[in-house]
């Protein structure tokens, strides 16, 4: 067997094994330990943590909530992200780099700060309530914060650039003459978009959707900051188990579960849409 490829791959493989595979194995092993008291674990090989996961409704609800919210955020991000992506890709404005820079600019600010900023916008003392009261539209502040809607807004705010950039890249790669070609053949502008541009941009849209779905499904900070008591995701259970309850074996069990769930989504995606599909569109 040829050795060169393996030599070239070695640094990456070693890094992945040391930093991903080995720690994840520790976590898997930890999920069989027994938690006796706060932060006190007994080395064991028993299934009480896994049993709790499968039998306790609390966890099942969290999984359902997580999938549901991830789907909502993904769909909204797809719709809301496609429009600016299309605009940036098609604009005749010469300083397109400026638009892209504006898109990336928020990444320079901490994700937590960006999330917290919504409290100052939507909170009872926030900008929006202030404006509405000043305009005399309302007398008392509207309760807008700490709902599922604010969590969704927070997610969109943070993840939208990923969607826009992915869609933009695939739109950018489409031959500019295709839509005019469709138009001269008799398609209305909308038909030309649906028949030509949209299908050709699907790989980017799908990649953006996958990214947003997985990022949403794995997060816990946004619901923690912007959500109410019932707006928790699976990630929050992990956070609670590890940080509040100091129950590391349960935290390990939940972590591993989330990894498998989101991993399954990625695998399903690559089976369905796949790299096949990606290359097909540009063949």
């Amino acid at each position: 067997m040829e050795r060169r490829p393996w030599i070239l791959l070695a640094p990456a493989l070693v890094t992945i094994v040391m930093l991903v595979v080995v720690p994840m194995s520790f976590i898997l092993v930890y999920s069989f330990y027994e938690n006796i008291d706060l932060a006190v674990d007994r080395v064991a090989f028993q299934f009480s943590n896994w049993q709790a996961l499968f039998l306790d409704n609390y966890y099942r609800i969290a999984i359902w909530k997580t999938l549901r919210l991830s789907v909502i955020v993904t769909v909204l991000a797809a719709v809301l992200g496609y429009i600016p992506a299309y605009f940036i890709a098609m604009t005749k404005f010469r300083q397109r780099w400026l638009l892209l820079l504006l898109l990336i600019l928020p990444f320079w600010i901490s994700f937590i700060i960006r999330t917290l900023s919504w409290i100052h916008i939507l909170g009872n003392q926030g900008a929006l309530n202030g404006l509405l009261q000043w305009l005399g539209v309302i007398d008392a502040p509207l309760q807008m914060m700490f709902t599922e809607a604010t969590v969704i807004v927070g997610f969109l705010h943070v993840f939208l650039p990923y969607m826009i950039l992915n869609v933009y890249v695939s739109l950018e790669g489409i031959d500019r003459n295709l839509e005019p070609a469709a138009r001269t053949l008799g398609a209305t502008p909308w038909q030309a978009f649906l028949e030509v541009t949209l299908p050709l941009s699907l790989p980017g849209l799908a990649a953006g959707c996958l990214l947003v779905f997985v990022l949403t499904g794995g997060s816990y900070v946004t619901p923690l900051i912007l959500g109410g008591p019932s707006d928790y995701l699976f990630g929050n259970l992990i956070h609670d188990a590890v940080v509040s309850e100091l129950n590391w074996p349960m935290g390990a069990t939940l972590s591993f579960t989330l990894l498998v769930l989101l991993g399954a989504v990625v695998v399903a995606y690559s089976r369905l849409m796949g790299l096949n599909q990606l290359s097909k569109a540009f063949r």
């Binding site: 003459n177 138009r183 001269t184 209305t188 030509v196 097909k280 569109a281």
Partner: peptide, 20 residues
């Protein structure tokens, strides 16, 4: 008259065939 109602055939320099 909008483009799609003109009934013209246009051949582009770079062919502009629909790749999908």
């Amino acid at each position: 008259v909008p483009i799609h109602k003109r009934n013209l055939g246009l051949v582009f320099q770079n062919y502009a065939l629909f790749p999908h």
